[in-house]
Write a protein that binds this DNA or RNA. Sequence first.
RNA 1: GCCCUCGUAGCUCAGUUGGAUAGAGCAACGGAUUUCUAAUCCGUCGGUCAGAGGUUCGAGUCCUCUCGGGGGCGCCA
Length: 621
Amino acid sequence: MQASIDPISQLTERFADAIARAFPQIQGVVDPIIKACNQPELGDFQCNAAMPLAKRVGMNPREVAKAIIAAVDATGVCEPLSEASIAGPGFINIRLREDSLVASLLALDRPDLGIPKAAPPQTIVVDLMGVNLAKQMHVGHLRSPIIGDAIARTFERLGHKVVRQNHVGDWGLPIAMVVARLMKLAEQGKADLNSLTLDQLDAAYKAAQFECQRDLAGLEAVNKYGLGPKALAECEAQVSGATEAFTQARQTLVKLQTKDPATYAVWEKIRDVTMAVCLGACKRLHVNVTAEHNAGESSYADELAPMVDDLVARGIAEPDQGALIVRLEAPEFGSIKEPCLIRKTDGGYLYATTDIAAIRRRVQKFGGERIIYCIDARQNLHLRQVFGASIKAGYAIHPRTRTPALMEHAAFGSVLGANGQPLKTRSGENIPLESLLEETVQRAGAAVKSRNPEMSDDECRTIAEAVGMAALKYADLCNDRVRDYMFSFDRMLAFEGNTGPYLLYALVRIKSIFRKAAERAVGERWKQTPPRASEHAEKQLALALLRYPGTVHGVAQALEPHRLCQYLFELAGAFSSFFDRCPVLPSEGEVRDGRLRLCDITARVLEDGLHVLGIPTLERM
RNA sequence: GCCCUCGUAGCUCAGUUGGAUAGAGCAACGGAUUUCUAAUCCGUCGGUCAGAGGUUCGAGUCCUCUCGGGGGCGCCA
């Protein structure tokens, strides 16, 4: 029944049968290689199987194509094939029958839009955010949740069980340094722990980093080059001060680990302030990440020591120069030369240790069959090490399937400014997320207002918010995620072109048709009328609609949301051409109703697709 | 030094896993609106797919090398 929706699978079935009949000597099923025709004048689809087949059977490819055509049962699917259908070295051009196209559209026109629930559903864990406590959010935090949430939504749409994970950097010495500093400031009356803002925390974080930074290199230089007693004294004072702050931070870390009430309370405040900002940003971005997805490093802290003991006991980890490492040279662990370091000489654990514990939890406890890391491309080596170590440790072996979970790094590049350098303010600072979102919405508001001068401020604000977020997210999602992408307000909010607003606009125009239809009392007979696919623009729109299920599956397989963006842009383009060429409401009878039906399916696919991407939609703009 | 990644039109990017004459958007130019939102549509212009070999009926796509950009490489996270 699924085959009846998608012309490609329908044709694949018919042509595979034909090949089997025409060439019984060939073992197994031959893929007929059915593709959409890149030139609509030639046909709707093409079969490219004749060329590779010719080699296997030792025949001229055009003769092979002839034999396929003779054997294919085209009944009810495509127009009759003849020698004229064969082109070039052996391409077979296929033109769909109109009634078959309409039948496919009717099959697509269900609540699930041709995407039934996966059976059986998989459990898929998506790591889609990793903010750090006491650090202001900036542009660099944008891509992971936007892309990760789109991937997570894709799997949910396909009926899989998705577990989102926000791997918060909320533990370790850096955090202890902030806690120590804040406690000291509070003691001196220079900070009120009950009214902390993230800006204050960010400042404290930077100050603490600076304070604990021992200038040992400077001291060495002073001694080596004999720069004099004054320089020596300054350097020694700096180092001794830093050492004191450092020591204090270490003591604070110990207190944190033992959950000393006063220390832990300060840590909780820092966590609450940071998370409130983080989750607020997610909400505004229409990213489905809430407190329940929080899986901070602190939540693994107690698991690390026993886990490492286990690894040592089983010989997975081995000592090396005082530290503890896991070797990964074997092909089954990734053929990685650099070993994975899991315990420092001083006994401390590293982020790889926590990440291995995370995989163990995600596979063993959550039952994850597929673990997806939507993280910066720079973390590639680290993740490959962690994946390899988890496999070696057995932690990645799924308890039910007894095979390793599929662990993937959905890497993404940096956000660049117009100069091709990572996006920064003029003074070289990271751009705060808040101001980025504000400017986007403000610019969107100006665009909305200029088009609709009489619109109320209230409605304008609501629309600007949605248009802004759509523009921002679409701009990020529409490019191949692994590449760096160039950020530009002007381009993402452009009045024309491949943008979020363009897609929203296409949808709004369809909504408007139905509003007008209601005003003109058109009635609902169109719901029982088959969609039209006669005129060129109608047919192209119909063909575009039928590609939807395959596109969503492709996104899930490759973890590439930009395929859905590309598709939706083409769908919106097909609709815009249709809108231009085929008047809906001014038409009458079956034509009007068939076009209304086509509009309805288009609106639902557009809306569904945008929802899968996590982009908000509008009724008017 | 080793590893990862990218290189396609003036600019920003696609290219459905090897198929026909490589496509969009922007920019430039020319058209289209008494009709459902012109944030639109139609057309023109624009290419040594970084370069060189190789694999084969066929390469932007696969393999090798070179050049160039970005990133990473055990005691930070």
